[in-house]
């Protein structure tokens, strides 16, 4: 491949009506860049990659990228991706979601996809707020913070996304931030390679809503904050639990091996094919009675 072929542009739908819809300074573009670098490094065939997204600012990412792309409904991207993966196991299916998308309306699909250990790569871009709809609080909005629906400060504790995925049964779970773009693309690469349900939480920000409502400032200032607040997993181990709770801990939090859904279902197919034919079953079987 020559230089041009390898550039990020070769992965973009340049015929599409760029510029994109995101606010300038938004972190979503950085995640998109990380995803492209990860895919490029692995040398994967564009035809064998599917990107599936939900609704929200993050949901618009697939349209800009030259893969098999599907912009689905709010919260349900993982369910669509589950069907797609089962129909076309040879596809690498990457699911791009936001925090409200994946954990509020899609929370149930999130834990069940992890529990099934279906071979999908979930990327949750966590900006801790509903950006597209104007800054309402999300399931990851920290306590005390302001949102357009929490004008007096937020009173619900946030979901820890990674811990939720680990508890539900994911095989690979990692967290980084949009400040640590190189680390992010490394984690995404691992996640795509991993067989089973893998999750990368990309901590981002929304300067347009969250930053403004909480008087944090511009994208640059929010980026600074991400840098200040985050800490590597090894460094975090030296901190007290109280100190840790104030930090964004970056690193591979979970990485185990176990059979994924498809490999187990392949055994179901084998067993079924070896069993009696339907007709015989209908004659001999209980027929679904009493």
């Amino acid at each position: 491949m020559d230089k041009d072929e390898r550039s990020a542009y070769s992965y973009l739908r340049t015929t599409k009506k760029f510029p994109n819809i995101w606010c300038s300074g938004c972190g979503i573009g950085i995640v998109m860049g990380a995803l492209i670098r990860a895919i490029d490094r692995m040398g994967l065939d564009k035809n064998k990659i599917a990107l599936v997204s939900g609704i929200g600012c993050s949901g618009r990412m697939p349209v800009y990228m030259d893969f098999n792309t599907m912009h689905t409904t709010h919260g349900r991207a993982l369910a669509f991706a589950t069907g797609l993966k089962l129909a076309k196991p040879e596809l690498k299916v990457v699911v791009i979601m936001g925090d409200g998308d994946a954990l509020a309306i899609g929370g149930n699909h999130f834990i069940h996809a992890a529990r099934r250990n279906i071979d999908l790569t979930a990327i949750v871009i966590n900006n801790q707020i509903y950006g597209m709809t104007g800054g309402q609080y999300s399931p990851t909005t920290p306590l005390e913070m302001r949102a357009t629906t929490a004008p007096y400060g937020h009173v619900e504790p946030p979901f820890p996304i990674c811990e939720l995925a680990i508890a539900a049964g994911a095989t690979y779970v990692a967290r980084s931030t949009v400040y640590h773009a190189v680390e992010l693309d490394k984690f995404i690469e691992h996640a795509i390679q991993k067989v089973g349900f893998s999750l990368v939480e990309a901590v981002s920000y929304c300067h347009t809503t969250f930053g403004r409502l909480n008087k944090i400032g511009s994208a640059v200032e929010m980026m600074h904050q991400l840098k200040e607040m985050s800490i590597s997993l090894s460094a975090a181990e030296k901190l007290t639990p109280e100190e840790r709770s104030l930090k964004i801990i970056r690193g591979v939090l979970h990485n185990i091996d176990k059979p994924d859904y498809s490999s187990l279902y392949d055994k179901v197919i084998e067993r079924a094919k070896a069993s009696v034919t339907g007709k015989e079953y209908m004659r001999a079987g209980p027929g679904g009675l009493e």
């Binding site: 599907m70 589950t82 069907g83 797609l84 279902y265 034919t277």
Partner: peptide, 29 residues
């Protein structure tokens, strides 16, 4: 019982919303 005999796949999803989503995903595949 029957789908896997034909090499097909059956999955019980977490709700009906997810069920139809999975069907659409499979059809796209």
């Amino acid at each position: 019982r029957e789908l896997p005999k034909y090499g097909g796949k059956f999955i019980q999803m977490e709700d009906e919303i997810a069920s139809l989503a999975a069907c659409i995903g499979a059809s796209v595949g």
